[in-house]
């Protein structure tokens, strides 16, 4: 028998909807409660874990990296604040704060020689040397990157630059232009990190245009104290040495 719409039918439908939505919200709030409980227990577990393994986290770079990844995955940032639970539990904020200071110091010290551009791996070695790894354990490339990131948040001039697959840390204000990056790349082919106008001009496609670009790039390196000139490598020609491009010299000088 076909039912015709009637007032009681509509009322029944309405009641049904309300019942469903009540049930839904009860279920949802139950779920939310459960989730909150879970999250809370998870956080406290994480905190316990962190406390228990604090020494490992602070001394083992690999352990530290995995811990960071885990924290990131669940949306906890142990570095976000220097106050509060995480930094108190771990001293992690402090860890990166100290590391940031050491990174800054190492950059300053090398600035005299390299003009403020230093390969990341060299910087890491220098920072480890400064720290004296016997007590605190070595820091990794990831740690230093992390610390440079934190320094960056302070609006500092420390910046990671990627040149042909290699990280350089820049500790003086300014941008690395594509031409400058190309120069660093070409210079890196030479064991002493040396480059001539001609070799760079070739990279820029040769001709007068290439030469002008090469000259500008090298002159700006000279002005910034990032390049040294050598007039005795080839008669009548200058070669430019970029300490940042040379494995050997960025380490020694």
């Amino acid at each position: 028998m076909r039912r015709r719409p009637g007032i009681s039918g509509l009322q029944r439908q309405q009641a049904q909807r309300e019942a469903f939505s009540d049930l839904g919200s009860v279920a949802a709030s139950a779920r939310q409660l459960a989730m909150e409980e879970q999250l809370q227990s998870f956080q406290s577990q994480l905190a316990q874990f962190a406390l228990k393994h604090r020494a490992d986290i602070n001394s083992q770079p690999a352990f530290r990296a995995s811990f960071h990844k885990m924290c990131r995955d669940i949306g906890v940032d142990p570095l976000a604040s220097n106050k509060g639970f995480w930094s108190e539990a771990l001293g992690l904020g402090e860890f990166y704060f100290d590391l940031g200071v050491q990174v800054a110091e190492a950059c300053m010290a090398s600035r005299l020689e390299t003009g403020g551009l230093i390969p990341l791996d060299v910087l890491v070695r220098r920072v480890n040397k400064r720290r004296g790894t016997a007590v605190s354990g070595e820091v990794s490339i990831d740690d230093v990157k992390q610390a440079i990131g934190s320094l960056g948040k302070l609006g500092s001039t420390f910046k990671l630059e990627m040149v042909s697959g290699k990280y350089l840390v820049r500790s003086v204000p300014g941008e690395l232009s594509p031409d400058a990056a190309a120069a660093i790349d070409v210079a890196a082919q030479d064991p002493d990190g040396a480059i001539s106008e001609d070799s760079l001009a070739q990279r820029f496609g040769g001709g007068v245009g290439g030469l002008v670009r090469a000259r500008e790039a090298l002159e700006s390196f000279m002005r910034d104290g990032m390049a040294w000139v050598d007039g005795q490598r080839e008669p009548g020609k200058y070669w430019y040495y970029l300490p940042a491009s040379s494995e050997k010299w960025s380490e020694v000088l």
Binding site: L112, E113, G115, D192, A194, M222, R223, G225, W228, V229, D230, G231, Q232, R233, W239, Y241, W249, V252, L253
Partner: peptide, 22 residues
Amino acid sequence: PPFYAYPPYFTLQPVEETRAKQ
């Protein structure tokens, strides 16, 4: 010292800041 083996140290540097180090 190490710089004694770095070729550009044997050329007088034209840029003031670099020359001061040299």
